[in-house]
Design a binder for these strands. Structure first.
Lengths: 308, 308
DNA sequence: CGTGATTACGGTTGACGTAATCATA
DNA sequence: TATGATTACGTCAACCGTAATCACG
């Protein structure tokens, strides 16, 4: 009666890889087993979920995929949550962080923790924003630090990953990064609307992704000149300096010999870092969370938020 | 590796009933099977989840219970969603509605649907707010109508039940219902703060529950005189008329020979009705949703909301 | 002692692997 | 024709029921 998650898992893998055999390799099954599992799921739900050759989700399969991810994630989260209260306090703290989330105040709080608990192993793993949130939900990270761009005091738009709490811990101003000598580089401030037809660098891991720009100030082209998938600021700044395009970056990172940061005047946007965590139990994670929350610019979410 | 939902289900049932044998009866298993399932789950998670005699959740069990409900719900939602796109268009529309959600404009849209499709069976099931949301998520209702009290244009605070969309469809003013002849009954308007020490009727299904009052204007006693668990307005008004206490109600329902409704001046609150639904496919549900959305006071939520 | 949870054990079911078959690019 | 999904079938594990045992009130 209840959609076996085991089958769900293989179904998701097959859909993602577009191949039964590839999914079988990844999951450590035989091709035959995967075929049988998908067939079982389809007969259980009474409808085909995948087309064969090419292997693509049907409409029903698409609907199922929308649910499968969150379900599998929450299942992991449940296990992780139980493990956290059952196990003894760990001597290791694993932090997930997105690219620009490790700001000064955050690093300061982390230093305070290491002074407090010198024998503690601290691991900081940098990953994409969604991976950080998913990792926290699944218990791979004790805490997550996620950064992004929003209006001042507005929470980040994070993916829904079950019962997670997010607290703002830092906000800093944004500037438009321009090559030194650019015609606009001597302005005192720039409005986003004036840059609609400029050439933007689309760096989803680092700066504002193009879709957000489009939403913030509609109209205009918002052409992306180059898509930069790295997570290091220096590389992006080099592209800016070479005139490939301009980017929206935290003020303190957007300066250099060949790059000028011009303050963004409207709309008012800031670079914001949020601490993401599940339910905490006494231990280093809780300690750090408490100290990070002390420097919070604003609390944005707790126990029960309205809906997805 | 992934917390079998089958076991989760029996664990939840055992925890809810506080008894292995009772859970076995309810689930159609033998006592022995339930015992084995719980034991399997405990050994899988590596920690006891329940105390025996009396049967109560341990701390780890409590954590698991927090996840179990949403997981089981989402599993049902997935099945229901798939069934909706797989099955042929139904000749029956089942609406879930909370007590005061069937307002005039909603009833009007429903009438239009019945003119449009005379052969359609329409069922309206009245239930608690949470049951409506859960029922929509699980596919027991095609659409949900949920009412509650918020600031104008603010979304209702609904429980998280997976990927649900909520659209506001009606708002109407609120009044303080007083017995005719009450010292305050001749006022032109009342501020909530002035009523902090009044005697309130706590009618969670109908009017504003006491906790909301406490949050809206903190300070004061907010004593609840009587708790009224019914869902009919007449009964509550009778209690008001008899002087058991006062209540916050939609303006058009709070009048009668023995009751006076005095407009609420601050904070500005309204009675709001929202339409709740999963992803819609062509059919009567989609038709009604479209027509209800046309009279929406404001859209409040769609595809992806930030987090729980 | 009696109610109710656990343990022992056997039968059935079902899930996976091997291998043969089928279908499509 | 070759790659890759399906079908056939045998084996083995897991799950549930019956029944005996244990433990707390």
């Amino acid at each position: 009666m209840g959609v076996d998650p085991h089958l769900l898992r293989t179904f998701v893998t097959v859909a993602r890889l577009g191949s039964f055999s590839a999914a079988a390799r990844e999951l450590g099954y035989t091709q035959s087993a995967v075929s049988q599992q998908v067939a079982t799921l389809e007969s259980d739900l009474g409808t085909p979920l995948l087309t064969r050759r090419p292997v693509l989700p049907t409409e029903a399969g698409g609907r199922l995929l929308e649910h499968a991810g969150p379900i599998l994630l929450r299942l992991d989260a449940a296990r992780a949550d139980v493990a956290r209260v059952a196990g003894d306090p760990p001597d290791r703290l694993v932090l997930g962080a997105s690219a620009l989330a490790m700001t000064r105040p955050v690093a300061g709080a982390l230093a305070a923790l290491r002074r407090e608990r010198p024998r503690l192993d601290v691991v900081v793993a940098v990953a994409g924003r969604n991976e950080v949130v998913a990792g926290v939900a699944a218990g791979r990270y004790d805490l997550g630090l996620v950064d992004g761009i929003t209006a001042p005091n507005d929470p980040l738009r994070l993916p829904d990953a079950g019962a997670l709490t997010a607290v703002g811990v830092a906000e800093r101003p944004l500037v438009v990064a321009l090559p030194a000598g650019h015609p606009l580089a001597d302005r005192a401030g720039l409005a986003l609307a004036a840059l609609a037809d400029a050439r933007w660098l689309d760096a989803p891991e680092l700066a504002v992704p193009a879709p957000v720009l489009r939403d913030s100030a509609s109209g205009g082209g918002w052409r992306a000149a180059v898509r930069y998938e790295g997570a290091d600021c220096a590389g992006l700044l080099a592209l800016v300096a070479a005139g490939h395009g301009i980017a929206l970056l935290p003020a303190d990172l957007a300066y250099g010999p060949e790059v000028t940061g011009v303050p963004l005047t409207s709309p008012r946007l800031v670079h914001r870092v949020e601490l993401v965590h599940g339910r905490l139990v006494a231990g280093p994670a809780a300690w750090l969370a408490a100290h990070l929350s002390d420097l919070r610019p604003t609390e944005v979410s707790d126990a029960s938020r309205p809906r997805q």
